[in-house]
Simulated assay, not measured.
Amino acid sequence: MIAAAASHATGSAVWADALLRSFAEAGYALTEPPVLQPAEPFLDLSGEDIRKSMYLTTDASGEELCLRPDLTIPVARAYLCSNRAGQPTGYSYLGPVFRYREGCASEFLQAGVESFGRLDRPAADAEMLALALQATQAFGLSDVEIRAGDVALFTTLIDALGLYPVWRRRLIKDFNRKVSLEQDIGRLAVATAATPNEYEGVLAALAGSDRKAALALVTDLMSIAGTSNVGGRTVAEIADRFLEQSTLKAGALPRDALAIIKRFLAIAGDPRAAIAQLRALANDCRLDIGSAIDTLESRVGFMADRGIDIANVRFSTAFGRGLDYYTGFEFEIHAKSSGLEPLVAGGRYDGLLQRLGSGAAIPAVGFSVWVEAFARIGNPAPSGRSS
């Protein structure tokens, strides 16, 4: 048993060496961020759900720290602290990450590439996908399937529909959480079909106004009514919850918006066919989403230029990866022989660096390689290719 474990570790090390050579030859220097990281960026940017799987501690000053559950945020923080911050720069990485996974080891290897500061976004997206496919070849695997989407398309659609802010926030936040998104769309259907209540006009007016002003008004009304604290919640917390839930119940959609959202989310298949369907949707419904579609089309063109078989890409407008910081292109690569878990996954996250403290938004895109996922599908050795 010990010999088998040692053999497995040695095999992973050989694969990892092949990966790092591949990334270095593509111009991505190796970086090694600290294992111990501030917990706040992960909780704020990856979604609160990640707390259940993180290993947390607190230092003497009271700061909450964690063993890094992922390497994208640590690499981004290292970039912002470097003398290259704000300039086009790429990094590769390989190291352990720590995350509770029922029935699996909590410490496992993660490799990957992050590209910062490139303004040619569609070309950079295509390069990341090409490097990700190159990574699968370093593991001796070529029979793979690419699953892809673009959260920017969904965001652009929601903006074009002119929804009230509360619904816009809710739907965009839930895009990467398929169960929540389906529930919200179901509630939209009920709300849209519901008989208007006697105070719907007031709620609609609040929903369409500045959120801070509406919240202040509701808070003042509750204070005048003598409400101070209910179930441990403050007046402000109660008012915020009331404002959101009341607006949701008010039916904050035009009658045709729900049908448009459903039609949009049903688009899937070959990327070029999806582009044609998206343009038809924009034309039929008079939606200003042409720029986002143009970006998708440009990305597909760069992918083809890099030799990626577009017919092997399964594009879906409903595809999302469950991380709050993604802002555009998202993808996963799966083995066709065992496609349940992704082998490589990544995407674009243009807003992350600003939320980590950058004075301005910096374009960013990258991917992670799940080294142990390759080992589990039983590839005996890496290929001889390193580029």
Results as ranks from 00 to 15, higher is better:
H8R: 14
G11Q: 07
V14T: 12
W15K: 11
D17Y: 13
S22C: 15
A24E: 15
A29G: 14
S46N: 05
R51E: 07
R51N: 03
L56H: 02
L56W: 04
T57I: 08
P69H: 09
P69Y: 10
D70R: 06
D70G: 06
G86Q: 08
P88E: 11
T89S: 09
R99Y: 05
F116T: 09
R121C: 09
P122F: 08
A123V: 00
A123P: 00
M128Y: 07
Q137R: 15
F139A: 14
L141V: 05
D143I: 04
I146P: 01
G149T: 00
V151Q: 00
T156S: 15
L163K: 02
V166A: 14
V166W: 11
R170T: 14
R170V: 11
K173P: 08
R187D: 11
V190M: 13
A191V: 03
A193Y: 04
S209N: 06
L215I: 00
T219W: 03
D220N: 09
T227A: 09
G232C: 02
G232A: 11
G232T: 02
D240K: 13
F242C: 12
L253W: 12
I261P: 02
A266G: 04
P271E: 09
R272C: 05
D284M: 01
R286A: 14
R286V: 13
D288A: 14
I293T: 01
D294R: 06
T295L: 08
D309S: 13
F315W: 15
F315E: 00
R321L: 10
Y325M: 00
I333E: 01
Y349K: 10
Y349Q: 10
G359H: 00
G359A: 05
G366F: 01
V371I: 11
A375I: 09
S383M: 03
R385Y: 12
